[in-house]
Design a protein around this nucleic acid. Structure first.
Length: 516
RNA sequence: GGGCCCGUAGCUCAGCCUGGUAGAGCGGCGGGCUUUUAACCCGUAGGUCCCGGGUUCAAAUCCCGGCGGGCCCGCCA
């Protein structure tokens, strides 16, 4: 590998075509898909006088002797280049480049638009510059990289070659943009809350612990922006949101990753119904704008199904949803009775909270059956320490979760704004931890947050939307790691081409001062 | 935290059960070819069989340990 690449780079240096010497920028006038769209009506075998300049990476080279076909990819897609001997011969620069060109190289090309005899819009090469070279072979075969280890270690190669992954990552950006647009139109402002926090909160999860040297104190990485966003509502930012990175020190699986992003929005003078409406609008309208329709075909278990995002979405209470599957009443049943029902279904729950048993039953029985967006409402109060008790019955919280295609996508509630209750609920959580021997994931006492409530939090609704999970659903991705551009892997011993070719160092160090 | 599976050429994998000097296709390299679409035809090079130890006359193959990765269960979104 390094032998031939070394011969190539030395030849480029000799010819004065070394891209690290000569290629600092390239003026691009056109993009692949734009060209193909504009000239689609050209008759096969015809040539235009329209000159373009494009740049991108070479994926395939089909050498036929007197004519060479090159597949060039830019950020929009593929376009074919045609290099013909009658144009190339006699031009020593072109001859050299065409001879040295490899798959993976990044080139700039100038030429006129033609359509080949087989009817493909192409650029007839009049000039080529090598702008950068691929020192390593890139696996440009049909389906790109398959080995999961290489996919995650060299994710730039996976994203380069796997169009599904590339589209998904771009669509995450577009969904975020649409959600920002909708929130902006409604008067929400976007903020950033601290990722380094003295007390973690806003969710129930194990935090990452780190240290600020200058303050000589331990801090936690944010598990959720919730309590800080509500402090901002106290401060008078009545409509506020954040697309927040959250860190949770838990295990990795196909739907969990220790750092993930959530859109959390809070609106003063609104309740959970308003937040469900907002959630519907944010997701349904983003899906429509980004994917073109409220109905979206996705893959599930090898089969294609259609998810319908048309509003309004189904709303069902948590207990009713369980009863619907079990075909028996569970409302009013005691903790022990519920534990027995759960046990008979193979769900063993040690937690002392009645609500936790209900939640487990719900996750086992109901969640896997969801397809279309469904709001599950009326969560047990005892597992919702930051939510406001249900106005009709304090055993429930005004809390909802959104499920799509078997995945929990969002969680929201009417926010608890009563400091007396909030203090009590935090104390309750501390008791819970003692009972569970420090094992349970509970919400820690946060006195500064309660102090903020003591200054007066308006009645407020809030919601958090898990964007990675939403995009998993929208793009039929089997693992959350597929939507995350880079995930962590254990260190490896990397063999570098540049380490082997350090004898070229002297030439490159002189480049700036020794223009040849 | 528990269980299962995988690691051989740049890539996809065979060989392992039943130990005997490392295989195929694709890709690479060289040659040919002026309308191809993962071009085609001819030729050719290419390996720390993940690492370490053990058994054996002999280990890719059997045994033990480790490393890396994946999946399922428990827990968190």
């Amino acid at each position: 590998m390094s032998f031939s690449i070394e011969a190539k780079i030395k030849e480029l240096i000799r010819l004065g075509l070394d891209p690290y010497h000569v290629a600092y920028k390239y003026v691009v006038t056109s993009r692949a898909e734009d060209i193909k769209a504009k000239y689609s009506d050209l008759p096969p075998g015809s040539e235009t006088e329209d000159y373009v300049s494009i740049a991108g990476r070479v994926w395939h080279i089909r050498r036929h002797g007197g004519i060479i076909f090159i597949d060039l990819y830019d950020e929009t897609g593929r376009i074919q280049l045609v290099a013909r001997r009658d144009i190339v011969s006699g031009n020593s620069k072109l001859e050299s480049i065409v001879r040295l060109l490899d798959k993976g190289d990044i080139i700039g090309v100038k030429g006129k638009i033609i359509k080949t005899k087989t009817g493909e819009v192409s650029v007839l090469v009049n000039d080529i510059d090598i702008l950068s070279i691929a020192w390593r072979p890139i696996p440009f075969h049909e389906f790109g990289v398959k080995d999961p280890e290489q996919r995650y270690r060299e994710r730039y190669i996976d994203i380069m070659l796997n169009s599904k992954i590339r589209r998904a990552i771009v669509s995450l950006y577009r969904v975020e943009m649409e959600m920002r647009r909708i929130l902006d139109e409604k008067g929400f402002i976007e903020v950033h809350t601290p990722k380094l926090q003295p007390i973690y909160g806003g969710a129930l999860a194990k935090p990452f612990v780190t240290r600020i040297n200058t303050l000589d104190m331990m801090v936690y990485l944010s598990i959720a922006p919730e309590t800080y966003l509500k402090r901002l509502v106290v401060a008078g930012l009545f409509k506020v949101y954040e697309i927040a990175v959250c860190f949770r020190n838990e295990d990795i699986d196909t739907t969990h990753y220790p750092e993930f992003i959530q859109l959390e929005a809070y609106q003063a003078f609104a309740d959970w119904n308003d937040m469900m409406n907002l959630t519907e609008e944010l997701i349904a309208e983003s899906v429509k704008r980004v994917y073109g329709d409220y109905k979206l075909e996705v893959e599930r278990g090898g089969e294609n199904i259609v998810i319908d995002f048309s509003r309004p979405w189904k709303r069902i209470s948590l207990e009713e949803s369980i009863e619907g599957v079990l075909n028996t009443s569970i409302r009013g049943k005691s903790r022990e009775e519920l534990r027995e029902i759960a046990s008979s279904l193979g769900v063993e729950v040690r937690d002392v909270r009645r609500g936790k048993i209900l939640e487990k039953l719900f996750e086992k029985l109901v969640v896997p059956k969801t397809t279309n967006p469904t709001f599950v409402v009326l969560f047990p109060r005892d597992i919702s320490p930051l939510a406001r008790p249900y106005r009709e019955n304090p055993d429930y919280a005004e809390r909802f979760e959104l499920y799509i295609n078997g995945l929990e996508i969002a969680n929201g509630y009417t926010e608890l704004n009563n400091p007396i209750l909030q203090y009590y609920f935090f104390k309750e959580e501390e008791e819970l931890r003692k009972l569970a021997g420090g094992e349970a994931e509970i919400h820690p006492m946060d006195k500064d947050y309660i102090r903020a409530l003591e200054y007066g939090l308006p009645p407020t609704g809030g919601v958090g939307i898990g964007l990675y999970r939403l995009l998993m659903v929208l793009n039929s991705l089997p693992s959350i790691k597929d939507i995350i551009p880079f995930t962590i892997t254990a260190p490896e011993d990397v063999k570098l081409v540049s380490e082997e070719l350090q004898h070229l160092l002297e030439y490159y160090l002189k480049l700036g001062s020794n223009k040849s």
